[in-house]
Design a protein around this nucleic acid. Sequence first.
DNA 1: ACGAAAATCAACAACTATGTTGACTATCGA
DNA 2: TCGATAGTCAACATAGTTGTTGATTTTCGT
Lengths: 228, 228
Amino acid sequence: MTKNDKSIAAPRPSGIGKRRTAAREDSSASHQARRKEIGEAAIRVFNRLGFQRASMTAVAAELDIDRASLYYYISSKEELFDEIVRAVVERNVALARNIQRSNMSPHRKLSDLIIAVMSSYGEHYPLIYIYIRENLSHVSDKRSEWSRYMRDLNTQMSDAVVAIVEQGYADKSFRNVGSSKVVAYGVLGLVGWTNRWFRPEESDVSAEEVGKIYAEMVLAGLESPYLR
Amino acid sequence: MTKNDKSIAAPRPSGIGKRRTAAREDSSASHQARRKEIGEAAIRVFNRLGFQRASMTAVAAELDIDRASLYYYISSKEELFDEIVRAVVERNVALARNIQRSNMSPHRKLSDLIIAVMSSYGEHYPLIYIYIRENLSHVSDKRSEWSRYMRDLNTQMSDAVVAIVEQGYADKSFRNVGSSKVVAYGVLGLVGWTNRWFRPEESDVSAEEVGKIYAEMVLAGLESPYLR
DNA sequence: ACGAAAATCAACAACTATGTTGACTATCGA
DNA sequence: TCGATAGTCAACATAGTTGTTGATTTTCGT
């Protein structure tokens, strides 16, 4: 008998458990604001440490707050991140698909896409970079649903670029340098790799300018035409 | 007879601790071979799960071996990986530096470098890809010495590419499309990003061919010259 | 068939992480 | 000043990780 000695006093449930679960679903302005604050702090920590190594303790420390207070607003580390990322990546994919389906020339499509995606990376820095580093090939089993969906978005993005390259090959506006898949992945790599070095705050080139450089490089090449 | 008949008496130190530490430093052929086996199994596991999520238990399971047997040969998870990676990356950097310091044209240098690095990735698959995914920006503090050194190698690699681009800018064999650093990182990104999709075994293009495509793309561009 | 090396078994210590809980205190508006 | 909401504190259960250990069994060369 560990518990039930009603002898001393009433059990008097504090009801804080319910208060907490309620708070997590609270959608009042103040709660949403706090959740946003927490989300932003988490993003900073994830950016410093990477998703795996970032502990909830570290996130709490970032806000100089108790870890329990974190769980007052959110219910898991994943929740804290996955939904924000999803929204931004969805927007990027939609953007790419719209460009691909437009009636611009392949040249213009590819150029616009590179610049638009780079600009988006700059605008949402560092969120998307954290996602890129996340590397969907090894996420924990718990998040498999999320990762399946994100992988699907990835595929849609690649497909859009592949389609543009193939259109260029078809109408002869692009030289056929090899497999459209390899070329498309290269273009995405060019842009995706910026996560390793591009820091908008300390850079003297803007994200958009980086995009322009890469678009120019991919389309016209480095080689000087005089020497051809 | 499960126990020693002298029952209570002799503590009789088994001396296995010493035997183990001795075994770890054993450099006999058979021990080196076993260590290599373990290293290769570890690489497979790291490739599947990533370095963080790969546990020693998983490595042991990969070899269908007891975890204690692992520690019979190696002394830590880091040791298992860091030295192998270092050797390969050192070779790649030396390669890049040699190309950069040669007296070939910038065009040829860049082309050769892209193809050589890609080929090396293919040859040492998946080791270098695991290293790339490792992302030196967040490694544990314990490995700071190793990571500092690896970061230094990285810098040397970038510097070599930057130097090539600048040489091309200087002698006008490259069009100046923008910051040499941005261009150089782009080239390395093109190649580095292949870790996300290139699987030599299942690919119908070889690593070298991928390198050739990227070299062609970067140097001559996608745009068809007829339309210029 | 003997003995040494190799490998295994079953624990153990120390640590870190996540998520939960109940009681407590601080804050702030009405 | 009262009462609700927000936030804190100090645990706790659970689980996973690394690296170690001593006793035992298997393997294998000679």
